[in-house]
Structures are given as structure tokens and as C-alpha cells.
Design a protein around this nucleic acid. Structure first.
Lengths: 324, 324
DNA sequence: CGGGAATGCTCAAACGTTTGAGTTTTTCCT
DNA sequence: AGGAAAAACTCAAACGTTTGAGCATTCCCG
């Protein structure tokens, strides 16, 4: 049999309410003798009492549970992020219920694990989500990591891409890069990021060429495809600029496998700074999304019930490594 | 206000019990007119009714929730695995509550997110866990991915390391490898795996040398440290054999950064086949843990409530890539 | 047309915790 | 010693869903 407050109450001959007040620390508000309090505590410990979350949340207590919606779990950026999120959330005394999906049928996604629970908040990671998802989550505060669409009433943390683009442009200039290539049409969000980079780099007087990736190609494969199929060995660009690290990894792999030297013959940059980026050789120059501090800030705000909506742009510092 | 069965019942003027029976599909067991059934369904849809999981599980319904304990979320093997697990579990109609930790204070770990819920099962991933954890989880069936300790009453899926070791030995022989190095004392489980490999390789007549990694060094770093600090450029071994891919990635990075050619001057092998292993260049030869099929089998067994304890050894095929 | 079965529905308790309101016991002051 | 206040404790309802038991109403058959 499960140990409940009733087990404890019966054992020491008091009422359940008293046990509850002692265990939930509300013993000061109403008089409880030290003697009783001690007995309750000891018996709870002895019997191995664990509160029943279902009963608590049914009664209206916050569940200390955070829902997480992840766009693509296969992508290292997201799995890294969820790992951090997991850790931070847990050490703040919350637990998570995660819903992840890999395909693009987002509006029809089954969010029931989230909807059926009483959640303190939901964190949505990855941005190719239409408003439909947010409509279905409107009974709970939604935090978003990635790009938010105007008009959404979410709390959004997004990379300061404009600033990163400027920094990238001046860095390439400094490295005396004259011709750059990039991959387009991976996804609407990345398209936007690439477009920003393109503009900044062009403004710095560097020539930019775009390659359009075949529809439906996954990130790493798109980079690999570009490096192997679309890079002319005789007239290589000076650098390939990628919207995310995973594409850059594909480019690097493809280039190396063709015997192209990195960074001597070809420089490569990414965005995100996933764990692998510093593990590969040559390690990847990229912009570090400060996921840890973003998640920490979100959890802090959840703890304070500070749900003021709005978009916050976060600075992603350039991490200079070997690939550029 | 939240939409409950009562909202629906009130709206169409019937009792809550009737609404419940219709919504939970138990309408056939007891008479419900088609007319009423239709009205209930329609109103539920119209009001956007979502069942309250807390109330259901309080009443004793299975929660369709699986607890997950992960040893180290930073490790790509685990985060890859959790990604797959997430996907498979979700598509089988379950959701997950994950507890992850990064340090080794395992016995004192806070498992309350798991204990406070009614779970259908718990999956424990990563194996440096003492019996204490399993004692605390004894009210629920526990599946384990990794090495189980004798005497545990868990259901354990573990890599068939003996077979892999033999396959590795004969592969190295075939590649005419004469001298091998490996890293030891990363963790008890990996120690065991390395020891198995060592024996098999020696039995095949190949010389094996072990390097003991400094205490507390993380996987990638241990590999990197070995390649940079402990590999004598003048008398390189023919191959470095690693207990997991992450160490191998460190070795490769370290070796390449010293100008050592892979696989020409030094061959490297791993174990696990994490996603990165095929993304790096040169891609890593390794043994593929069939995580997807393991997780599928576990979820299937949970769905069938088949909780027969025991250990199952799973075959990990050798994936031949460029690093060896 | 009377009696039993089948049909369609309602009642009420239960799950474990929380909490406002109520009751009993002790304490303290005059 | 009397009485009010303070302290210690109990009652009972509520959260939303489920379910065994029970109550009407209709139907069928001899």
C-alpha cells in the first residue's frame, strides 16, 4: 500500500489535516505543538512518505512542472539545449514534460501531454511553429527561445542576429575574405538569419553568393551537399558562412573529404556553438548562443511568476576557433 | 474557467457519470443512446474539453507517463538516446518525465519528480548507479539501458561487449594492426568494456598498452589528453581503441592537431555510434548501439505490461568508416 | 395485461491533499 | 475561581474523474 498522509495520521492518532499542515510547512499559521510536529515528521520519514503530486495539483497547487516543446530533437543544438534546460530546471526544483517532433506537421501535433497537465509554464524551443500551437497553449504562460512572430503574446528570447552579422562581416574583412558563399532555404528562420548575414557582409564590400539547398534536405546533409556538389575546386570562395553549426559541420566534412584545406583554402563559420563545434578538428568558428543564461533567466522568471510578454535580443559572442 | 466533464454535463443537462462514460469510451458497457453520445461528443469538442490527468491518475488510471533517469546529459550518447526515446515514447502515446544529473553524487540524487508521480515505468540510462537508486524506485518497474549489476531486479538491455570485442580484434588483425593503445579508468563500466577489448585483442596476438586517465577528467578531454600528452610521436601505436565515441573524438582531435594523419599513421575506433561520429572527418569506425530498437522494445514491453526481469545482450554491429 | 428483461440514465463514494471554519483544550490574568 | 484569549486540534468540503450500485422507463413475450 502507498503511504499517504492518512497512514501517518492513523499511526500517531491525529487528524489528516494536522499531518498536512505539518508536512507542508504551514504549521506556524495555526498552532501545532512541537511534540506533535516532531512525531509527524518522524513517522513520515520512517514510513517513507512521498506526497502525491496528482492530488496536490488537483487541489490547485502549482505542479512545479514545465512543459517543453522542441522542434527537432535530432538537431544537436536542440538536444544540447534540452540537456541544459533539464539540468537548470531540475536544480530549481521543477521537472519537465517534453514534447518533441521531427516532422513539419506542427499544427496537428499532439500536445496532449502538455494540455492534460497543469503546468507552471511552457518553453517552446525552435521557431518554425505557426500561431495555432500558441492558441492551443493560451491557458499557460509561454516562453520562447528563437524567433517570435509579431503579435504573439509570448515571452521570447532571440539571438541578436543583426549584431552578430555585423561582427561576422568585420571579422571576415579583417581576415581579408573577398568572396563568400552561403546556403539558403533551409527553413524560414534560417533564411532570415542568412539574409541578415548576407546584407551585412555585402555592406562590408565582400561579394556574396547563395546556393539554394534542395527542399527537405536536413541541415548537415545540406552543408555536405554544398561542399561536395556545388563547390568548384578551381574557383573556391574564401569562406562559407552558415546559418547554423550543423550546416557548417557538413561543409567541413564535405570539403575535407575532397582534400580542401580548412582554413587555408576555405574558411567556414557557423552559428549556435553546439558542443561538437569545439570537438571537431579543425574546430569551428561560430557565434555562441548563450543558452545556459537564457534558460536560467527563463526559469528565474517562472519562479517569480514574471510573465511580462515581449522580445529580448541576446548577444551571441563570436567564438574564434580554427575553421576561420 | 477550465472545461471539465461537469461543464459538459451541465450544458446538455445530463449527469457527470454519463459524460465520463461517453468520453472514456466505456459507453458500450452500459446503455447510452446515440443521441446523447453525439451531444456529449459535440459539446466536448465545442468547449475544447481536455481531460485532467491529475484527476485521472488520482483515481488510479495509468498515467501513461514514463520516468527517465539519465546519468550524464552532456554526453552525446545520452542526449542522442534521450532524443530517440522521447520520439518513440511519444508516438506510443506516453510522455516522459526526465531526471538527469551530471555529477556522481548519485545516491543523494533528488528523484522526487519521479517518486511523486504515478509512473507506468522508469527507464534508467547510464550505469554508474548504485543499488540505492533502485531501492528507491522499487514501487515501479525499472528498465535499464547499460550494464546491470547482478542481483538487481531490473529489466536490463546491455551491449554484447564480448562479441564486439572479438569482432574488433579480428578487424584490427585484418587491418594488420600490431600495437594498440587504450585509455582506462574513465568509469567502472567503461573500465569493464575496455578490459574486455584488451583481452580479446591480446588473444588475437596484438600488443596492447593502457594509459590511465587522470581522475575526474571528462570523456572527450581524456581522449584529447591522451593524444596530446601521452602519444609519443616517434613511436606511435598502430591504433587507439576507445570505450566510447566521445573519447575517440578527443583522440582524433588531439592527433590531428599534432599533425598525425588518421587513419594512415594512427587508426582510431570508438563504441556507441553517436550522431557526431559520422559527421566528423575522418568519420569514426565504431560499434553501433541499436538504441532505437532497444527503446522500441522497451516501450512495447511497457505497453504490454511485460515486466519479466533479466538481462538481454544486444548485438552492436561494427560500422566501418574512415578512422580505421 | 402482468412480469421480467433490457435500456438509459443518476447517485454517491472514492482517490490524496488542502484549507476555511469550527471545536475542544490549555493557559493566563484578575 | 471565573472567564476570555490563545493554542491545539478536528471537520468537512473541494479539486475532476471514475465506477459499482441503483432507479426509472420502455419493450417484449406468454
Amino acid at each position: 500500500m502507498r503511504v499517504t498522509q492518512k497512514s501517518i495520521a492513523d499511526k500517531i492518532g491525529v487528524s489528516v489535516s494536522l499531518v498536512c499542515r505539518v508536512l507542508s510547512g504551514r504549521a506556524d499559521e495555526i498552532g501545532v505543538s512541537d511534540e506533535t510536529r516532531r512525531k509527524v515528521m518522524e513517522t513520515a520519514e520512517a514510513l517513507g512518505y512521498v506526497p502525491n503530486l496528482a492530488a496536490q495539483t488537483l487541489r490547485g497547487k502549482p505542479s512545479r512542472t514545465i512543459g517543453v516543446v522542441v522542434y527537432d530533437f535530432q538537431d544537436s543544438f536542440f538536444s544540447d539545449l534540452v540537456g541544459h534546460l533539464q539540468r537548470i530546471v531540475h536544480s530549481a526544483g521543477y521537472s519537465t514534460v517534453i514534447v518533441g517532433f521531427t516532422d513539419r506537421e506542427i499544427d496537428t501535433q499532439d500536445l496532449s501531454p502538455l494540455l492534460q497537465r497543469s503546468l507552471d509554464a511552457v518553453i517552446v524551443v525552435g521557431s518554425d511553429l505557426s500561431g495555432n500551437v500558441f492558441d492551443r497553449l493560451k491557458h499557460v504562460p509561454v516562453f520562447r527561445i528563437g524567433i517570435g512572430f509579431p503579435g504573439e503574446s509570448t515571452i521570447c528570447y532571440t539571438a541578436d542576429e543583426d549584431r552578430a552579422a555585423l561582427e561576422l562581416a568585420s571579422y571576415l574583412k579583417e581576415r581579408q575574405v573577398g568572396r563568400v558563399m552561403c546556403v539558403r532555404h533551409i527553413s524560414p528562420i534560417l533564411e532570415r538569419r542568412v539574409e541578415g548575414m548576407r546584407r551585412a557582409i555585402e555592406s562590408a564590400g565582400i561579394k556574396v553568393e547563395s546556393i539554394v539547398a534542395p527542399k527537405g534536405m536536413r541541415n548537415f546533409d545540406a552543408g555536405y551537399w554544398m561542399a561536395t556538389e556545388r563547390l568548384n575546386a578551381k574557383s573556391l570562395p574564401d569562406a562559407v558562412v552558415c546559418a547554423i553549426d550543423l550546416i557548417a559541420l557538413g561543409v567541413i566534412h564535405g570539403a575535407l573529404s575532397r582534400g580542401i584545406q580548412i582554413p587555408d583554402q576555405l574558411k567556414v563559420t557557423g552559428f549556435d556553438d553546439i558542443a561538437v563545434s569545439r570537438q571537431i578538428y579543425p574546430s569551428l568558428t561560430t557565434f555562441a548562443q548563450p543558452v545556459v543564461s537564457i534558460v536560467e533567466r527563463i526559469v528565474e522568471r517562472i519562479a517569480q511568476s514574471n510573465f511580462k510578454t515581449g522580445v529580448e535580443h541576446v548577444y551571441c559572442p563570436l567564438v574564434r576557433r580554427l575553421s576561420c
